[in-house]
Nucleic acid binder design. Structure first.
Lengths: 194, 194
DNA sequence: GTCTATAAAAGGATAGAC
DNA sequence: GTCTATCCTTTTATAGAC
């Protein structure tokens, strides 16, 4: 049980509140109350609300990139198809848990207007990481003229499941993931049928 | 050129601002300024900010339901497969234009905490409308044991393309739609391959 | 680093004249 | 219906004691 710095506590509480209520919907009072300090004390750690917010988002972004790469590496000795399936599952699991998926999604889709550019930059890196990883898996299993199509469909699958996290219970969501995956992989195998 | 009531002007401006900046991120001053009146004048038309917001969302929800049903009806004399494809395309098109998709998405995923229940009710109706329409198309083309799987995959396709509206240019987005659709429909045709 | 006190601005909302 | 004036609350942020 190692003790946590106040800075980390602040980031932790801020993550949860920003995720649930957004940037504008979260006040520094809320955060201070959650941490158990008074509002002005926050300014000993961050120089503004925006500064704190960017700190939180930066951590979210870095953590997610690391998760994605590490997971792909761990799966890399399996068949390409199994890699894709497990990556879909673990990615969904990761984003479903805690406030991670919530804030990730919220900030990618609806960044506060004033920070749009800074946030876009962070997530551009994330996008590139994902592309590189997925592409390298697809290249192991597909002819050249096919991989872009499958890549697009796979990303749509990831995005669709991402979206549905917020609509359905974990059980319902898992069922939908299985069904969507099954149809996807059938489509991959059945080349030039049409 | 028929003249517009101030009420409608307010709703119109509020729609755009709420869509871009969210409920908490939009102030009544912003709306009043956009309309060209003073802030207190808003209260002659709506009794509170929440009231105005719910009015806007209600219209969005009703409009979308009507669009979905009307589009499906218009397509109903085509083959089931063509119906699915055109519905995907037109739905994507509809949500991509104006601020419609933006506010629709924002409110489904991140309603303001205080209005969560009211909004959930509105969109429950939307979900049922979509389910009914899609199910009736799928039943024309699939055996009983298959339709649920295809239904889940089709919804994932809709949701994935919905999500991607915000990441990509219309051209890039259309390319991705084509590729995702192609793989989807291949999967539908290639039954029990695995 | 944390506190109290306080500033300065902006938020939603109401009263009352026109 | 729209305005000015005003109220009350909350917001971000700073100053300065401990």
């Amino acid at each position: 049980m190692k003790k946590e710095s106040t800075q980390d506590r602040i980031k932790e509480v801020a993550l949860i509140l920003f995720a649930r209520n957004g940037f504008e919907g979260t006040s520094l009072s809320d955060i201070a109350k959650g941490v158990g300090i008074k509002k002005p004390s926050l300014y000993a750690h961050y120089k503004s609300k925006e500064d704190l917010f960017l700190g939180v988002i930066h951590k979210v972004s870095v953590d997610y990139n690391a998760f994605f790469v590490k997971t792909a590496e761990r799966l890399s000795n399996q068949s390409p198809e199994k890699q894709l399936y497990d990556l879909l599952r673990e990615n969904t699991e990761y984003l479903r848990n805690d406030e991670m998926g919530l804030i990730f999604k919220r900030m990618m889709l609806f960044p506060p207007e004033s920070l749009r550019k800074e946030i876009a930059q962070m997530f551009e890196k994330t996008e590139n990481v994902m592309k590189r990883v997925i592409k390298s898996i697809l290249e192991q299993m597909l002819p050249n003229e096919e991989w872009e199509r499958v890549f697009d469909a796979y990303l749509c699958l990831l995005d669709g499941m991402f979206e549905q996290i917020f609509y359905y219970s974990p059980e319902e969501h898992n069922k939908r993931l299985e069904n969507s995956w099954t149809l996807f992989i059938r489509g991959v195998h059945s080349k030039e049928e049409k």
